[in-house]
Amino acid sequence: MTTPAHWRKSSHSGGNEGNCVEVADLNGHVGVRDSENPAAGHLTLTRRDFAALLADLGARD
Rank of each mutant, 00 (worst) to 15 (best):
M1Y: 06
T2M: 11
T3K: 06
T3S: 07
T3Y: 06
T3F: 10
P4E: 10
P4Q: 08
A5M: 07
H6M: 10
W7A: 04
W7G: 03
R8N: 10
R8G: 01
K9V: 15
K9D: 04
S11K: 12
H12T: 09
H12F: 13
S13H: 12
S13R: 11
G14A: 10
G14W: 09
G15F: 12
N16G: 15
N16S: 12
N16Y: 04
G18S: 10
N19V: 14
N19I: 09
C20V: 06
C20D: 15
V21F: 05
V21N: 07
V21R: 11
V21A: 13
V21G: 09
E22V: 00
A24T: 07
A24N: 03
A24F: 02
A24L: 01
L26R: 00
L26Q: 01
H29D: 03
H29V: 01
V30M: 07
V30I: 15
G31L: 00
G31K: 00
V32E: 05
R33E: 07
D34A: 11
D34E: 12
D34L: 05
S35C: 06
S35N: 12
E36Y: 06
E36T: 09
N37F: 04
N37E: 03
N37G: 01
P38D: 08
P38K: 13
P38I: 09
P38A: 13
P38C: 14
A40L: 13
G41Y: 05
G41R: 04
G41V: 06
G41H: 07
G41A: 08
L43V: 12
T44Q: 00
T44W: 00
L45K: 00
L45H: 03
L45F: 11
L45C: 03
R48K: 13
R48L: 06
D49M: 02
D49Q: 05
D49A: 15
A51S: 09
A51K: 10
A51T: 11
A51H: 05
A52W: 04
A52H: 14
L53P: 01
L53S: 03
L54A: 14
L54V: 15
L54Y: 04
A55Y: 03
A55C: 05
D56G: 13
D56I: 04
D56W: 08
L57T: 06
A59R: 12
A59K: 02
A59Q: 09
R60V: 07
R60Q: 02
D61M: 02
